[in-house]
Design a protein around this nucleic acid. Structure first.
Length: 555
RNA sequence: UGCCCGAUAGUAUAAUGGUAGUACGACAGAUUUUGGUUCUGUUUGUCUUGGUUCGAAUCCAGGUCGGGCAACCA
């Protein structure tokens, strides 16, 4: 079943490590900061970390990197856990960097004791100035040479809350002339008199990312600590802390983050869209967040397949969102129930069908499944709703649908012939007239009439209304972050079209939240968990069907 | 401009010194009671200049282009 796949570079590293006897098994971790919602880029990291451990019989932890109380919140913790599980993964151990605050504090004391850390009274601006630039070395702070005793004492006072935010920091004493800016006496601890979402007011000093991440990895015996490329310059520092402390030698490896066309992926930008109400929250179906894609109707399998296919590399990339859509269609085609919905209704009257009469026809639930996935009842009658765009007064070239004199099949029903139409004062077609062939009934057609087109429909007498939300790409340009000026100026003003009253077949009255449907010839849709109520159906379009006709029209 | 990383069809990803392959896309055709699905075919590529070698996408050197690094963010 599984096709032969070559190893990506991280798999090669793991296999080499195992072959060399470095580890018998591996331990990875997924370490989000709980300061926002997970997006498709995180999904890549999740699939990578969990997938790698799974492949080599290892384990994966979920660890919240909650070292900055200013930005973090339990709301995000909850959503992140829900999203990881929804994607289909279960962590081995659940940890918080904040669980290690005591241990981290002890590590800091140890480094101070070794003369490798000092308390600095310089302000943030002064530290930035004395740090130098990438091309010129930094200058030592006047406080760099404080004695171990003094440092211990001052750090104790910092911890005790005797100073205000920004008054003092604890710095590692490394190399102010290092070509790597991160090695120029990086800050280990800063004062933040802010309540932490878990430790509350226990601490007023908090470790920086660099002083927490590697040690957390080491505490959990993480063998392969996988992160994105921008952390590459942090690696010497990551290793320095581990070496000076003599703890478990976790090793960091970097891969290129995921970029997708027609969207943005940075948390900062996504947050802006939410805060400035350009979208309907983090779970807006147009957002590249996991929660947004879930609401939109994407399936976990389609996201996993996508992450699997794009692979993992160290080169910058921007992946065509069309590839994601391909995997969604591929998955939904096999699972979504087929239903008929008319988005832009006009009336079709079958003039030779008996008045006040109707009949029940059968429609397959999914032709891709065995036994067509079973059948549902379709109520057929003299008056039907059809799609306005399925009728043309004067047919275009290669037009297979309705036009005066043309034959077409009504899906799961009869072949009809268009005999006329009505227009209103504005010249808009309001009604199409036709005749049907009783002997052409679906499944028992003896008419012998050849038709090229098949159209969806719903009965006027026996259908309901629903709101349908059509989503398009959020941005008008492939890479909004790369354009001049504010990325928000490139937002697609037509990314959401709300159809207030589409006509749906009555079997959809039983639709449940999160259930997926294919509206025949229209695309994949799902019931919106947020806005659908008992009395009102609201559907989100996940993705359109491939449409070769619209390409034909463009020619 | 100092240090680090990277460069294979339009996009992504293989080839681990020995036939440049795969997926998506695009195009054409067949099938089809969804202009869907499925099937078949076509299309387009190793950044550049040298070097090593019987042989280089792969190794080496120079160049070009792209990305990262100067938060008390992660």
């Amino acid at each position: 079943m599984s096709e032969e796949r070559s190893l990506h570079f991280l798999e090669e590293i793991v296999e080499a490590d195992i072959a060399a006897g470095k580890h018998t098994t591996i331990h990875t971790r997924f370490p989000p900061e709980p300061n926002g919602y997970l997006h498709i880029g995180h999904a890549k990291s999740i699939c990578l970390n969990f997938g790698l451990a799974d492949k080599y019989g290892g384990k994966t932890n979920l660890r919240f990197d909650d070292t900055n109380p200013v930005t973090e919140d339990t709301e995000y913790v909850e959503s992140i856990m829900a999203d990881v599980r929804w994607l289909g993964f279960e962590w081995e151990e659940l940890h918080y960097a904040s669980d290690y605050f005591d241990q981290l504090h002890a590590f800091a004391l140890e480094l101070i004791g070794k003369g490798l850390a000092y308390v600095d009274d310089l302000s943030a601006e002064e530290i930035a100035e004395t740090k130098g630039t990438p091309t010129s070395p930094g200058k030592a702070s006047p406080y760099r040479s404080r004695s171990v005793e003094e440092n211990l004492h001052l750090f104790q006072e910092m911890k005790a809350g005797m100073y205000n935010d920004g008054e003092k920091v604890l710095r590692a004493k490394i190399d102010l002339a290092s070509p790597n800016m991160h090695m120029r006496d990086p800050i280990m601890y800063r004062i933040r008199k802010t309540e932490h979402h878990r430790t509350r007011d226990k601490w007023c000093i908090y470790p920086m990312y660099d002083f927490a991440h590697g040690q957390s990895d080491a505490i959990e015996n993480i063998t392969h600590s996988i992160c994105t490329l921008e952390f590459e310059v942090h690696k010497p520092l990551y290793n320095w802390y581990i070496e000076q402390l003599g703890i478990f030698p976790s090793r960091q490896f970097e891969f290129a983050r995921l970029n997708l066309t027609y969207t943005v992926m940075s948390k900062r930008k996504l947050l802006q869209l939410v805060q400035e109400n350009m979208v309907d929250g983090w779970d807006d179906p147009r957002m590249p967040t996991i929660s947004g894609m879930r609401r939109r109707g994407y399936t976990p399998a389609s996201i996993r397949n996508f992450c699997d296919r794009i692979g993992v590399q160290r080169r910058e990339n921007i992946i065509d969102v069309g590839l994601l859509e391909f995997f969604v269609r591929e998955d939904l085609n096999k699972t979504a129930l087929r239903r008929m919905v008319v988005l832009d209704p006009i009336k079709l009257i079958i003039t030779n069908y008996p008045e006040n009469s109707s009949e029940i026809l059968q429609g397959e639930n999914n032709p891709e499944l065995e036994d067509n996935g079973g059948y549902r009842d379709l109520n057929f009658g003299r008056e039907l709703w059809i799609e306005a765009e399925d009728f043309m007064e004067e047919p275009a070239k290669k037009w297979f649908r309705l036009a005066p004199g043309m034959h077409v099949r009504l899906k799961n029903a009869y072949i009809i012939k268009c005999t006329g139409f009505q227009k209103n004062g504005a010249g808009k077609v309001t009604e199409v007239l036709c005749e049907y062939y009783p002997e052409s009934k679906s499944g028992q057609d003896t008419s012998g009439i050849p038709v090229k087109g098949t159209m969806h429909w719903v009965s006027v007498a026996d259908s309901s209304t629903a709101e349908v939300r059509l989503y398009d790409r959020l941005f008008q340009v492939e890479n909004p972050s790369n354009e001049d000026g504010d990325f928000k100026t490139y937002i697609n003003p037509n990314s959401l079209e709300i159809i207030a009253e589409a006509r749906v077949e009555n079997s959809l009255l039983e639709a449940k939240g999160g259930q997926q449907f294919q509206f025949i010839r229209k695309g994949y849709f799902t019931l919106d968990n947020k806005y659908a109520t008992n009395g009102k159906l609201v559907f989100n379009r996940t993705v359109t069907l491939k449409d070769t006709w619209s390409k034909e029209v463009k020619k």
